[in-house]
Each structure stands twice: as C-alpha cells, then as structure tokens.
Amino acid sequence: MDPFLVLLHSVSSSLSSSELTELKFLCLGRVGKRKLERVQSGLDLFSMLLEQNDLEPGHTELLRELLASLRRHDLLRRVDDFEAGA
C-alpha cells in the first residue's frame, strides 16, 4: 500500500470528532460546503484534498498547517517520520 495513504489513514484514525469538525471548518475555503457536509472521517476529507491536489506525498504543507492548528504535535511527528523515510 502507498506509504502516504498509510500515513493519512493513521492520522485520520487518531482524530476525534471535534477535531474533524475543526478540520472541516478550516478547509471551507478549499472544499465546497456541500462536499464537506458529506465528510464522515478524516480520510474522507483527505481524499477530497488529494483529488484537488492539495495533498501529495511531496506536498504536506497543508496537512502540517491543519495538524498544527489542532495542536496535534504527535501527528506532526508522524508526518516528519514519513518525510524522513520517503
């Protein structure tokens, strides 16, 4: 399986429902409101961002910004580990 997708799945499974709600709010300018209403998990949101090329294995800035906004430094370390091994 693609290591970047494994990372996104790992991050998604670590998010609380309130954190997902916050991420959806933060992505309002990037993803349409109707699409965001269908998001049920972090993976749903990340999939939309992947489709729009806002997220890519070599383009993790948005993911970092979102996780920093949540103050999830543990998840930021996972992104660091991914990039160190990528």
Rank of each mutant, 00 (worst) to 15 (best):
M1L: 08
M1P: 11
D2K: 04
P3W: 04
P3V: 05
P3F: 05
F4R: 02
F4Y: 09
F4P: 02
F4W: 08
L5S: 14
L5H: 10
L5A: 12
V6S: 15
V6Q: 15
V6L: 14
L7F: 08
L8G: 00
L8Q: 02
H9T: 14
H9Y: 08
H9A: 14
S10T: 12
S10E: 15
V11R: 01
V11W: 01
V11D: 01
V11I: 14
V11P: 00
V11S: 02
S12H: 04
S12V: 04
S13Y: 15
S14G: 09
S14N: 12
L15H: 00
S16F: 02
S16C: 06
S16G: 05
S16E: 05
S17D: 12
E19I: 03
E19T: 01
E19K: 00
E19Y: 02
L20Y: 03
T21P: 03
T21I: 07
E22T: 12
E22H: 12
L23G: 00
L23H: 00
L23A: 06
L23I: 07
K24V: 04
F25Y: 11
F25H: 15
L26Q: 12
L26I: 09
C27Y: 04
G29Y: 05
R30Y: 10
R30Q: 06
V31A: 06
V31Y: 07
V31L: 14
G32F: 03
G32H: 11
K33I: 10
K33V: 10
K33L: 10
R34A: 14
R34M: 13
R34L: 13
R34V: 13
R34E: 15
K35P: 07
K35R: 12
K35W: 02
K35H: 09
L36E: 02
L36G: 03
E37G: 10
E37I: 07
R38I: 08
R38C: 10
R38W: 06
V39A: 12
V39C: 11
Q40D: 15
Q40I: 07
Q40M: 10
Q40T: 14
S41C: 10
G42Q: 03
L43W: 15
D44L: 03
D44Q: 10
D44G: 07
D44K: 04
D44F: 00
L45M: 06
L45F: 04
L45H: 01
F46Q: 02
F46G: 02
F46N: 01
S47C: 14
S47G: 13
M48A: 14
L49N: 01
L49M: 08
L49H: 01
L49Y: 01
L50S: 15
L50Q: 10
E51A: 11
E51L: 08
E51I: 06
Q52Y: 06
Q52G: 10
Q52W: 04
N53D: 13
N53K: 14
N53C: 11
D54N: 08
L55V: 11
L55M: 14
L55S: 06
E56W: 09
E56A: 15
E56Q: 13
P57M: 08
P57R: 10
P57S: 11
P57V: 14
G58Y: 09
G58I: 04
H59I: 04
H59A: 09
H59S: 13
H59L: 04
T60N: 06
T60C: 13
E61D: 11
E61P: 06
E61F: 10
L62T: 08
L63N: 03
L63Y: 01
L63W: 01
R64N: 01
E65C: 10
L66N: 02
L66Q: 04
L66W: 06
L67G: 02
L67E: 00
A68I: 15
A68P: 03
A68Q: 14
S69C: 11
S69W: 05
L70A: 04
L70K: 01
L70R: 02
R71Y: 08
R71H: 15
R72A: 03
R72V: 02
R72L: 01
H73E: 12
H73A: 10
D74G: 00
D74K: 00
D74S: 00
D74N: 03
L75G: 00
R78F: 09
R78I: 09
R78V: 09
V79T: 00
V79Y: 04
V79S: 00
V79E: 00
D80P: 01
D80T: 07
D81Y: 06
D81W: 06
D81L: 08
D81F: 05
F82P: 00
F82Y: 14
E83T: 09
E83W: 04
E83S: 08
A84R: 14
A84D: 14
A84M: 14
G85L: 10
A86M: 15
A86I: 13
A86Q: 14
A86W: 14
